[in-house]
Design a protein around this nucleic acid. Structure first.
Lengths: 270, 270
DNA sequence: CTTGACTCTCCCCCCGGGGGAGGCCCCACC
DNA sequence: GGTGGGGCCTCCCCCGGGGGGAGAGTCAAG
């Protein structure tokens, strides 16, 4: 019985390509049992096929070769299990991200099939009494910040016994960029002037001419609505005349699926 | 109001890296509205941010840039939807593959935590009367081939009114490699000699000394069992004395989850 | 005018190999 | 003991989708 198999046969046994096997040799990940000094021919033992199989499986899970090495090098099976488990966690995160993105893709497809991705309209908006808080926020924290802010307003306005007069809105003074964040105001229309309490103050929100569009879908997919508006404003020779607004037409507590959220986006223009 | 934004600001607006933006420019995927002749500075319009956003989303879905180009170039939204849908299908396939592999990984972890991945034992196996069919198979078709073959044997043996005398087994004469396939025999132990009918013949299956191990899990994860056995045989100075056998201890109709399948693998040794 | 922040091009690098050129090597058959 | 033909070697370039950094030019505010 011949003990050693050359690379081609080993390749078929293990379903790893010859190229890959040579690559693993070079990395020291799967070194042939014998390498002929003069010819350079690689020869593997049957027993090595097992390691090769393990590599193949781990690679089919897109595990980086370095991690494969680590997982296979560990004598302690608990350590090896830890490496595998770490990768499993990574895969699950990735999987979840893909599922989320698949939903987004689906909505993109549906939107594409409509005539216009975002229809821009010009609207006149009257001034309005609001109860508001102002705060600094950033892309990462905006979700929490908004929920918290509206909570404060709701508590203060409720305590004052003033009824709400419309859906809540957000006024963004800066363009949020990745690291620095920006200043925003959360506002709730109220039926009569709100005297203020703690952080929550009352004021009259300016009216004016607005470039307006509607975003339907999760909040973090709202970017295109903004870009469409700013692009439209530029192309139609207008100018941005103040901070942009979002109006939240959907109550998350009543509409559980973010895909059904409706949000107006407005830019005051001149 | 300035119409044009340099690359850094555009990068922040769109959350695409400056490197990526230059890359997309080079590929003609997102060409700046203005490029200064003398300085080479790239300037983008606000309206371009929308296209950039679309690219960002599609890239976050790992869509190849060529497909992104195709999806964005399509004037007809139906064509664009087709490209997106094609990618969605790809992602779903990938997702399903990952889920399957996660299961495998899980079983690998559990196996690793046991003391030995595969415990090899030496067993004496007595000769036995079987009803058998012989056929050519390949890696792709083996699942169907086996089911079909056992079906034939079952029908023929049932018709002859002979009771079964043990779990079914598979005798593999060649090592299956990727393309060429190999010869195998499917055999069912029977209580008394089977006279033969059509393709199904009776014979005495040889006994002998076997290197033996047990595989638990889906059939297509059985590779390591083989490699462990052949490696063990080699390392212990034995020789393979005939075709290998698999014994299916689990009836798929009674055990629905492939993860619970039990399969013996045996190599006759000298 | 200076300074510091941007931006330019150019080149090399990452992973995990694939493709192919050009040249040995092995072994089965005659 | 030749001689084919397939197997195997090394070496180099290539892919996608950019990242990192060098060295030089540019822009805008003070």
């Amino acid at each position: 019985m011949e003990n050693l198999v050359p690379i081609g046969r080993f390749s078929k046994m293990t379903r790893l390509s010859v190229k890959a096997l040579r690559h693993y040799d070079q990395l020291g990940l799967l070194v042939p049992a014998v390498v002929d000094r003069s010819s350079g021919y690689r020869y593997y033992t049957f027993a090595q096929a097992n390691r090769a199989e393990a590599i193949r499986v781990l690679r089919s899970l897109d595990m980086p070769l370095e991690d494969v090495r680590e997982a296979l090098a560990a004598d302690d099976p608990v350590v090896a299990a830890k490496v595998l488990d770490r990768h499993r966690a990574r895969l699950e995160v990735e999987l979840e991200r893909h599922e989320r993105m698949l939903g987004y893709l689906q909505r993109l497809i549906e939107r594409k099939e409509g005539v216009m991705p975002y229809e821009v309209q010009v609207k006149e908006v009257p001034p309005q009494q609001v109860a508001a808080v102002r705060m600094h926020t950033s892309i990462e924290t905006i979700g929490n910040d908004v929920a918290e802010g509206f909570g404060k307003i709701g508590a203060a306005v409720g305590k004052a016994g003033i009824p709400f007069a419309g859906p809540p809105l957000l006024i963004m003074f800066d363009v949020l960029d990745e690291e620095s964040g920006g200043e925003m105001e959360l506002a709730f229309p109220v039926a009569k002037p709100f005297p203020g309490e703690g952080e929550v103050f009352g004021r009259e929100l300016e009216g004016g001419t607005m470039a307006w569009t509607m975003h339907s879908g999760p909040y973090d997919e709202i970017g295109p609505a903004y870009h469409t508006l700013t692009g439209w404003i530029q192309e139609h020779g207008h100018e941005i005349a103040g901070p942009s607004r979002e109006v939240y037409l959907t109550d998350p507590s009543e509409t559980p699926d973010p895909a059904d959220y409706l949000t107006e986006v407005q830019f005051p223009i001149r």
